[in-house]
C-alpha cells in the first residue's frame, strides 16, 4: 500500500468520525437546553470550547455567543477548519483521492452526504430543522462505517481506516468528558433539586456519544460523574471508551508492517490510563485529559514516522 494513500484513508476515517461526533454534540446540546432549569447557566459557547477554537470564533463573531452564531460556527462555517461542513469537505477530498482503493459506494455515499448538507445548510439555523438534518447526518456516517466493515476485506486499507476512526473517537471522548467536568465544576447548585440536574447533565453526555444505554447495562445505580468517567475512560467493552479504542488499536496493529513501536506506545498509554484517574470537578481532571490528548497526538506522529512519511534510502 502506498504511504500517501495510507495517510489519506487514515484522515478520511478521522474526518468522518469527526463529522458524526460533531453532529451528535450539537444535537444533544440542543435537547439538553430544553431539560435544564432556567436557573442553571448553560451556554452554547461550551460547544465551541470543546473543539478548541475559541480564538477563531471571536475573530468572526466577537463576543456575540448566541445560539445562532455558535451553531453556525460549529456546523456550517467553512472558514472554521473544525466545523462539521469543513470536516465533511475534507473527508470528501480524501476519498476523492483514494477512491481507487475503496468500494465504489464509499465515494457516492460521502459525496451524496456532502451535497445534501451543502444544499440544506440553512437548516442548521433553526432548532426544528437542525435536529432532523443532524439525525440524517449521524445516520449517514453510521451507514458509511457499516458499509465499509460489511464490504471491505480486512486489509491494510481497512486497518488504516480503523486506526483513524479509533484515534479520533478516543480524542473526542476526552473532550466530551472535559466539557462535562468543566461544566459541573462551574455550577453553583442552589439546592438538592437542582443538584439532581448534574445527573441530567451526565446522562446527556452519555447520550451524546450513544453511550447511555450501554452505561445503564453496566451500572444500575443513579448516574454519577465518577462512574461515567470510569466508564468512558477505562471500560474494556464499550466501543467508545478510551481503553477500548486503545485495545482495538493493539488488536489490529500487529498485522501492519513494522508496527512494534506503535504496539509498545499504545500498550504503555493503556496501562497509564488504567492506573490514573482525575477527579470530577477538579483541575486535575482537566490536566489528565489534556495529557491523554497529547499522548494521542504523539501516536498520530508515530504513524507518520512508521508509515506515512518514513525516511527511506533513496
Amino acid at each position: 500500500m502506498l504511504s500517501r494513500v495510507a495517510e489519506r484513508v487514515y484522515w478520511l476515517a478521522r474526518y468522518v468520525e469527526r463529522v458524526e461526533n460533531t453532529a451528535r454534540l450539537a444535537k444533544v446540546h440542543t435537547q439538553l437546553m430544553l431539560d435544564l432549569p432556567k436557573s442553571v447557566q448553560m451556554s452554547w459557547f461550551g460547544l465551541v470550547q470543546i473543539t478548541g477554537n475559541e480564538d477563531q470564533f471571536s475573530q468572526h463573531y466577537g463576543q456575540v455567543r448566541s445560539e445562532q452564531n455558535c451553531m453556525h460556527f460549529l456546523l456550517a462555517d467553512r472558514s472554521n477548519s473544525a466545523s462539521l461542513i469543513s470536516s465533511l469537505w475534507w473527508a470528501r477530498e480524501n476519498i476523492r483521492t483514494t477512491r481507487d482503493i475503496l468500494p465504489r459506494e464509499a465515494w457516492s455515499h460521502i459525496n451524496e452526504l456532502y451535497l445534501l448538507v451543502k444544499a440544506q445548510q440553512s437548516d442548521f439555523a433553526e432548532r426544528k430543522t437542525r435536529n432532523a438534518l443532524l439525525s440524517q447526518i449521524i445516520q449517514a456516517c453510521q451507514a458509511f462505517s457499516g458499509m465499509l466493515s460489511g464490504t471491505m476485506s480486512n486489509n491494510d486499507t481497512y486497518r488504516f481506516l480503523k486506526l483513524g476512526m479509533l484515534i479520533e473517537r478516543a480524542d473526542m471522548t476526552t473532550r466530551l468528558i472535559d466539557e462535562g467536568g468543566l461544566f459541573v465544576a462551574q455550577q453553583q447548585f442552589n439546592n438538592e433539586d437542582e443538584a439532581h440536574f448534574s445527573s441530567v447533565l451526565w446522562a446527556h453526555l452519555l447520550r451524546s456519544i450513544s453511550a447511555y444505554f450501554m452505561y445503564r447495562l453496566a451500572y444500575q445505580t443513579e448516574i454519577s460523574g465518577e462512574d461515567v468517567l470510569t466508564f468512558l475512560t477505562q471500560d474494556r467493552h464499550f466501543a467508545r471508551s478510551i481503553s477500548f479504542c486503545l485495545d482495538e488499536i493493539l488488536r489490529l496493529s500487529p498485522a501492519l508492517p513494522n508496527s512494534l513501536a506503535l504496539q509498545k506506545a499504545v500498550q504503555q498509554l493503556g496501562w497509564q490510563i488504567a492506573q490514573q484517574q482525575g477527579k470530577i470537578g477538579s483541575s486535575e481532571l482537566h490536566l489528565h485529559l489534556d495529557w491523554i490528548q497529547r499522548e494521542l497526538c504523539a501516536i498520530n506522529g508515530l504513524l507518520y514516522q512508521l508509515w506515512f512519511a518514513p525516511k527511506q534510502v533513496a
Binding site: M1, L2, S3, R4, A6, L256, W307, Q312
Partner: peptide, 8 residues
C-alpha cells in the same frame, strides 16, 4: 519503485 507502507 513506489513508496509503500512496508518499504519500496
Amino acid at each position: 519503485y513506489m513508496r509503500n507502507i512496508d518499504g519500496l
